[in-house]
Amino acid sequence: MTVGELAEKLGLEIMSCGSRALNTAVTGVYSCDLISHAMAKLNPGNVWITVHTNLNVAAVASLAEASCVLVPENIEISGQTLERAEEKEVIFLSGGKSAARFCYEILSLLESPS
């Protein structure tokens, strides 16, 4: 499943780097708001769900090779962060549900035999 397919299935808005969404594969999901945990535990290709929307999120997502950052609960993402995301080629997704709900839905999609 690609980030683009994920966004379509879950009704997520692609906020940055949309051009990469169709050829970036999703390998799993990790949800944490502590930067050090995310840095150490994110695996390449993971969707990173976090309520943080500061500039560091783009830097960490890039370093950890997350497939994308998913910001839940329609939390606003600043223009400055999205600019940084474009520079770092990090896809930001936005959606209205909670982090827990998104984890469940992403894991269900990844684990469903298709």
Partner: peptide, 16 residues
């Protein structure tokens, strides 16, 4: 508030 300060910096460095 930015998500730092978990107290894992130095231990992460040591671990990795």
């Amino acid at each position: 508030e930015m998500g730092f300060g978990a107290g894992m910096g130095l231990s992460n460095i040591k671990k990795h």
